[in-house]
């Protein structure tokens, strides 16, 4: 079960916002019983919600249209660990924002007042290793299992499918954009266990997404061909 909702919904459209929060609460409520059926010794299924502050590689392009090249994505997903050593994570998130069409001259952006709405929807699957530093691993002959580490660093990589949609005012048929392309992911961070059933994680998430930007628009003028970038992500994870 995945969840995605956009910043505009959270900020302005109260009816949709209520629906989105309700959906998030339902997700978490459903997740607890599921997680309760798992143990750290085996598979652990852990739903999560995430917020992602991404610095787009197409910095000049996003800055020209939105005034800043760092944008927020909201999403959620499912994190699966095996013996608390390896993980696989499936997530979906979305960035949706309305800026203005523009052009760039000598590094300065000139916005034209014509609304442009861009929607980026990444569907990602990553996997990697989780670490338990400073002797937190169980002693070989101990009958008692030690308490799991409160801090669990992890590194991983993966692939994603990135859907991109761009709509503008005064478009003619065929001038709006709707496309998708695969991309590569590298990530690393640390999970902090706050409770037996509850943790948070922060990581750095690098994506490289070719094939969407660079063929037209400001991204072509600026020679920016990567829809990816580097993001700081914060996750709330439910489950052991």
């Amino acid at each position: 079960m995945l969840m995605g909702f956009d910043l505009r919904v959270l900020r302005g459209e109260s009816a949709l916002r209520g629906t989105a929060f309700a959906a998030a609460l339902l997700l978490l409520a459903a997740a607890v019983p599921a997680a309760a059926q798992t143990t750290t010794a085996g598979l652990s299924l852990r739903p999560m919600v995430l917020v992602d502050q991404q610095l787009f590689a197409a910095m000049e392009t996003f800055k020209a249209v939105f005034g800043q090249s760092s944008q927020t994505l909201w999403g959620g997903g499912l994190n699966v660990t095996h013996n608390d050593r390896i993980y696989v994570e499936v997530s979906a998130s979305q960035f949706k924002k309305t800026g203005e069409r523009a052009f760039v001259n000598n590094g300065q952006a000139f916005r034209l007042g014509i609304p442009l709405t861009a929607t980026v929807t990444p569907l990602e699957i990553t996997g990697g290793l989780r670490f338990h530093p400073r002797g937190q691993r169980p002693p070989r002959f101990s009958a008692r299992r030690p308490a799991p580490s409160r801090f669990v660093p992890y590194v991983g990589g993966g692939i994603g499918l990135y859907q991109y949609r761009e709509t503008s005012g005064f478009s003619l048929p065929g001038e709006d954009v709707e496309t998708r392309h695969a991309g590569a992911i590298l990530e690393g961070g640390v999970e902090v266990r706050l409770h037996r059933w509850f943790g948070v994680a922060a990581d750095v998430h690098y994506t490289h997404v070719p094939g969407i930007l660079g063929a037209g628009g400001i991204s072509k003028d600026e020679g920016e061909k990567d829809l990816g970038g580097i993001a700081g992500r914060f996750k709330v994870i439910v489950g052991r």
Binding site: F110, I114, L116, D176, V177, A215, G217
Partner: peptide, 9 residues
């Protein structure tokens, strides 16, 4: 000219 450019088009 009046419409300018978008991100990808």
């Amino acid at each position: 000219t009046l419409r300018g450019l978008g991100i990808a088009r």
